[in-house]
Every structure is written in C-alpha cells, then in structure tokens.
Design a protein around this nucleic acid. Structure first.
Lengths: 133, 133
DNA sequence: CTAGAACCTGACACTGACGTCAGAGGCAAG
DNA sequence: CTTGCCTCTGACGTCAGTGTCAGGTTCTAG
C-alpha cells in the first residue's frame, strides 16, 4: 500500500508518516521511482507510534525503545529494555498525577454544583482551598 | 512575598510566574517600584496552575476555567462551568487512553522478559502483533 | 494520450510554555 | 556609598510535531 492509504488507515497525516520515517521509526520499501510502499504490519506500527507519542514519549525516546517491540535480538535489546521499563514507570507516575488532578477538578465541579443549587442562598466563600492542590 | 520566594515555594521558575501573570492566570500587588508581591494563597494557586498545565490544558483554556475555582459569581461561571466539565471529561478520556498505552507497554515488557528468560532457546517470532495497538 | 490525483524532496511557518540574555533599576548589609 | 543579589521589561531562542507551500515526477482513469 502507498503512503496515502496507510495514512488513512492509521489515522495519521501523510506528513507525519514521512516524519516518522525521517526519525527512523518507520521503514518503507521504495519503488524504482522512489515511492514508498508499506505492508500490512505498518498500520499496527503507526498506531503504536501514535500511542507512544500520545503518551508523551519523544521521537528519540521511541527510537531507543522500539527495538523492544520489533527485532528482539538480545544485544540491541539491553538498553532498549531498560529504557522501556523506565518509560513505563514514568507513564504510570504521570497517570497517577493526572488522576489526582482529575480528582481536583471533580471536587471543584462538585462545589460549583452545590453553589448552583443554592443559587440565591447568598453564600459566598472562596473555593480556593477546595482544589486539593 | 516576592517572586523569587513564590517560585521556590511553588516549585516553578520565575519566568513561569511572570508568564502566568501575562496570561492573566496570576495576579500580584505591585510595590511603588514595580516589584511583584504575593500573598500566601498564591502558592496554592500556582500549584493548581501547574497541575492544570500538566493535565494538558492550555493557557487560554485555563483562563476560561479558572473563574470556577476563584470567584464563583453565577454570571462569570456559566461558561466556565461548562468548559470545566468538558475538560474534566477530556482528561478522563486521556487517562483512559494512557492507561491502555500502559497496558501495551506492559505486554511488550512481559514478552521481552520471556524472551530474556529463554535467552538461547532460539525462538524468534515477530512481537509486533503483541503490542495491542 | 492526457487530465488529475497522488507522490516526491526541501524548506519555511507555527504553536506554546518556557529558557535565556541584555540592560536597567531596587534593596539590604557592611 | 558600594557590593551583590533580586527584580524589572523586552525580546529572541528552543523544541517537537505538524501544516503548508513550491516545484517537480509518477501513477491511473478515461
């Protein structure tokens, strides 16, 4: 399949796919005329890349980590494996933090709901202390 | 307290604090000479700002949302409240996605662990299909 | 064959939350 | 008064992923 189809099927822009290749994250077979051709695996691969990007990994980090998911030769893998687990932990911590923030938002929302309920009951304290920050 | 102390106590850079003020997210009393002075509440406020930024909110979104946590007059609040709940939902969805990604990483790590266990048992299939992407 | 769509490389633009530097003024201690 | 640290404004730099435009080639349908 060519780049346009891959882009559509993986939900990425053509520009992004070329960028991923430029970063060494995606490979392609080139036709004699220079056009990129991909196999079916590429779709999954791009989806994974998108997820890793969404998880806050940078191109270079993904570069370090990808060998883990691709060609698991023990040699290339030692560093990649370490990096992978490190990023896993970082992500887990980040999720925990976001979950706390979600809790803060929920508290603020709850307080506002209460205020809206007593709309004209004339209570007016500062909610700052309720953010849990 | 002056900006340097606030920065230290809130774990932000001086540059960031000035930026927050520029974005209308943080206010300060100015001394006659123009120096910024903050009260105790500012620390909490900056911590909240940091969390919101970490949650992926942009300055303009925080601007829309902040009235909710600050001066809950019903008027300013209507839009802010909507935006707040919308952002809450967005954050929840994002956390869900990150959690899935975490699962993907865990699967990849688990596979790698197995490979490392059978180090020389000569099995060599592609792990691509195990990413769950 | 020909029109139009898709592709190529290369390069510059943009966004957003800062870092950082420049040049100038404020402020407490010796 | 001076030394040294803190602060001020203003402006430009950075990073990373992507949009977008330019100018040219390649594929495909009619």
């Amino acid at each position: 399949m060519r780049i346009g189809e891959l882009a559509e099927r993986a939900g990425a822009s053509v520009r992004s796919l070329r960028y991923y290749e430029e970063q060494g994250l995606l490979t392609s077979q080139r036709s004699p005329s220079g056009q990129r051709h991909y196999d079916e695996y590429a779709v999954e691969r791009v989806l994974l890349l998108k997820r890793l990007y969404a998880a806050g990994l940078t191109s270079s980090v993904i570069t370090e980590v990808l060998p883990c998911t691709y060609a698991p030769s023990i040699e290339t893998n030692d560093h990649a494996f370490e990096r992978m687990t490190a990023e896993r932990d970082r992500l887990a911590a980040h999720i925990a933090e976001l979950t706390e923030t979600l809790g803060s938002l929920d508290r603020v929302i709850a307080m506002n709901r209460r205020w809206r309920a007593e709309q004209d009951a004339g209570s007016n304290r500062r909610p700052d202390t309720a953010t849990g920050a």
